[in-house]
Each structure stands twice: as C-alpha cells, then as structure tokens.
Design a binder for these strands. Structure first.
Length: 421
RNA sequence: GGAGAGGUCGCAUAGUCCGGUCUAGUGCGCGCGACUCGAAAUCGCGUGUGGUUAUGCCACCGGGGGUUCGAAUCCCUCCCUCUCCGCCA
C-alpha cells in the first residue's frame, strides 16, 4: 500500500507510476476526492464528539435534575448528527481503503521503462550452454521414459496440471529442498516451518488480495487461503509488530508448497512440470531498515546466484521493466536457467525489493532506538529456488545419451545417488 | 463434541459485582535527571498507538454490534487462550 500523504502531496508521482506500469492513472483523482471529503467530514465528526464528551461530563457533575434533562436532550440531538456522520465517514474510509489496496507500488527510478515482458533487460548470461552429441530430450519425455514422472496419474488424482514423481526423481525433489534450506541457513537465514493456509488479512498484507483473488485457492467455510508462495506467511509473521531496530536485518527462509489457480488455455506452456497448480518452492525473505533495502536486494541476489553456480547450470539475469514489474515490487531481478530439452530459459527465481509496501499493509514497524517513533520496515523476497523448474534444468542439462541423469555433485550427499536411471 | 475459567497501556497485575472522579492505578522493565571519583542502592521526573484543519481535539481496555447523555465496567455475538471430560491421526 502507498502512503496516502505521499499521494496527497505528490499525486503526479503516483500517476506517473501507474502510466509506467501501463495502467490507467484515473483512480488517483477518485482517491484524492475521497481523501479530501473524508478528512472534512472527520473533523466535523470529531468536533461533535468533543461537544458530546464535555456535555456528558457536565451531566456527571451536575446535581440539578432538570438541568441534567436539558443537557441530555441537547446531547441526544448531537448524537443524531454523529450517527449520520459516523456512517458517512466509515463508508468513505472503506472506499478509500479499497482504492488504496488496489494501487501497485511505485517503480524505482532505476527500473528500465517498457511495456511488457518483451522489454525486460538481460543483464548477463553466465555459464556455457552444454554441447550435446545427441538430441537432448525434454523432461516430460525423459521422466516418463525413466518411469519416475507420471502425468497420467497426476491427472487421475487431481486433474489437469498435476503430476506424480516417484523413486529417484521424488528423492531429487526432496533432496533439493533440503540442500537449498541448508545452504540458506549456512548464510545466516533462519528456517521457518509455516502454515500452508493463512487468513484473509495475511493475504491482504502480502498484497495478494484484493487484486489476485481469482488466482488463489480458498476454503470458504473457514477463512483459510492456500498460500501461493511462502512470501505470504513470511510477511504475516510480523504483522502488527514493532521490531527492534538493533535486530534488523532479519533473514528468513522457508519451504512451502505453493498453490496457484492459473486459468491458462491448455497448450504448450502447460506441458511438463513447468506450471502446475501446486509446486514446491524454497523462499527467502528479509525485513530491514529502509536505508538498507537496496543493498539487501543485491545481497539476496548474490545468495541466489551462488546456488546456480553450485548446481553448475547456465543461467541469465533479467531486470524486469516497468511494464512487467510485480504488483508490490519496486525493483525485480529474475534468474532464468537454460533447459536444453524444451529449449527455453525458465524463471527459477525472482528477487524483489518491496520497500514499505507490505509493511504498510501489515503494519510492520521497527524502532531505531528505545523510545523512538516506530517506522515502517522494508521487506524483500526472493525464490531460492522454485523446485520444479530447477528439476527441469537438472534433468535436461545432466541427461546422458542412454537417458540416465547425472546427479549434480553438490546434491549427491542429499539425494544419495550419483545418477538416476 | 460437552462443562468451566479467562483475554486491560513492553511484561505482570488492579479496576468489571455498585456505568461518570479510568486512557486507565501499582510493580517490573526502559529513558532522563539528582546523589557518587565512578558504580550499585536510593530518590525525582518521564515512558502506548494512530488520526487530525494539530500548545488542542478524536479514536482504541481481544473483534463486531447493542443499551445509555455517558461503557474497560451492563447485554448480545464472534475469535482466541487455559482447565476438565469425550473422540481421534
């Protein structure tokens, strides 16, 4: 959420942000009007309440019964006005709040302009693409051929966009999660085991609601929403807290499955394990002071890059342009790995500086020193990594002519296999 | 699922029966100051959050609603915690 005071004082900054994101700046005018009216009515309301409070105190002090009744009549009249104004102010408040919740974050000036993902900027490509002496197979042929990846059974169990892994591929999946978590822990991140469902206000704080309702799985009976990423409960952890400035930066990591309703037409992009309705991911998350967030984004990015070095998979780094930037992000780097079987670069991680956007929504603050005014923290999130796409990259890059798969060196202790065959 | 107890300003508690003098006392913690060569101890002062057209005013005693001129206090409802019983992975 953006600061209403900022919008009030510099509306053009906000309009410009929307235009950069290829969105309509019109809501700003409505927000300004709502804000102005709300404040006008609010001060009227408060003046009336002040009158009522002092009159009521007077009644308490007064001995004379008929005098009391006179004042009571007066207060009853004031109360009718208060009721009306109170209702009006609550309505204005709700409308304003709703409009603010729909506004995306303001892109960092550093973010390249662009209309959509075609204008993202490739910053670098790291590692040589492997030369194959044979034609590399896509994972969705390789897996079933080995007998450890079963799309039919996934569909039988849960419908389209689900699959079943087994044997060594199931083990690879589990080992990968374990290795990633251990890697982050060794770099100072604290591991969390989190609920895979959260309440609505957590979704709101993380910025998933109200805008992305149609992409979320939801238990209507219980106000329980399935997490689309561990970023959501990691944001919720400190909702309402005032953190100790001395303790920042907080570096967190967690594994969760991620549930995403994505109504794509059945087709090429949904083939294989690239875009399931459920997938595993290890997430990284930081709470820091405002002045540190840019540096922390670089730190997080370096931590992610390190993983790809260790896995020895070629990757490239993209900076998202203004038109493709996520709703809550001010600046995002995507890391994409090369998958030679399907011949695509696959996004396995996305690292974003959200600044105070989630902190405002979730009211997450810190105190610089004891007694100082609370300030909003900055939050950052990054995948480290998305499991299915990392598995695609491993399966396709490490495949041999006989269809067996070499297990990357760093994973051998975790998977307890040298090869999948 | 059944029976009961409870949720108050960082923590611990008082206040709730008998509505106004309670935004709210006390202890601890924390901050500033005094005393001291310095420290401990002691003493004094201060110490929630937010809104606002701002030396003021308004809101907040788990959430929501009601009664009343006036609610931490009375009523309804929801949530959560704890104890006992039942059931169960």
């Amino acid at each position: 959420m953006n600061d209403i005071r900022m919008i009030r004082e510099k509306p053009d900054l906000m309009r410009e942000a929307l235009v950069k994101r290829q969105m309509d700046p019109a809501p700003i005018d409505r927000i300004l009007a709502l804000d102005e009216e709300r404040r006008a009515k609010l001060s009227e309301l408060e003046a009336l309440r002040a009158q009522r409070n002092s009159a009521s105190k007077e009644i308490g002090r007064m001995q004379d019964e008929s005098g009391r009744e006179t004042i009571k009549d007066r207060v009853r009249a004031i109360n009718i006005q208060i009721d009306g104004l109170d209702t009006l102010v609550s309505e204005l408040d709700a409308q304003l709040q709703e409009a603010l919740y729909e506004l995306p974050n303001v892109p960092d000036p550093d973010v390249p302009p662009g209309k959509d993902d075609s204008e993202n900027v490739v910053l670098k490509t790291v590692g040589a693409l492997r030369e194959f002496a044979f034609t590399p197979l896509p994972h969705y042929e390789l897996g079933p051929k080995l007998g450890y990846l079963d799309f039919e059974r996934g569909v039988k169990l849960a419908g389209t966009r689900f699959y079943v892994t087994s044997g060594p591929i199931a083990k690879l999946q589990r080992g990968l999660i374990q290795w990633l978590l251990d890697h982050h822990i060794a770099r100072g991140y604290r591991e969390f085991g989190l609920p895979f469902m959260v309440k609505q206000d957590v979704m709101l704080a993380a910025g998933q609601l109200p805008k992305f309702r149609e992409n979320l799985y939801h238990d209507v009976e219980r106000d329980a929403w399935f997490v689309p990423t561990a970023e959501v409960p990691l944001t919720g952890l400190h909702m309402g807290d005032i953190l100790d400035g001395e303790q920042l930066t907080l570096n967190y990591t967690a594994y969760t499955p991620c549930f995403r309703k994505e109504n794509l037409a059945a087709g090429k992009d949904t083939r294989g394990i690239k875009r399931g309705f459920q997938f595993d991911k290890v997430e990284m998350y930081k709470y820091c002071k405002p002045e540190d967030s840019e540096q922390e984004l670089q730190n997080m990015f370096a931590d992610i890059e390190d993983i790809l070095h260790l896995l020895k998979i070629p990757y490239r780094v993209k900076q998202l342009c203004t038109g493709d930037l996520g709703f809550g992000s001010t600046k995002t780097y995507d890391l994409e790995v090369w998958a030679p079987g399907i011949g695509e670069w696959l996004e396995v991680s996305s690292a974003s500086n959200v600044r105070d956007f989630q902190a405002r929504r979730g009211n997450i603050r810190f105190r610089r020193s004891p007694g100082a005014k609370p300030e909003f923290v900055h939050t950052l999130n990054g995948s480290g990594l998305g499991i299915p796409r990392t598995m695609i990259a491993i399966l396709e890059n490490y495949q041999q002519e006989d269809n067996s798969i070499q297990v990357p060196d760093v994973l051998r202790d975790y998977v307890r296999l040298d090869a999948i065959n």
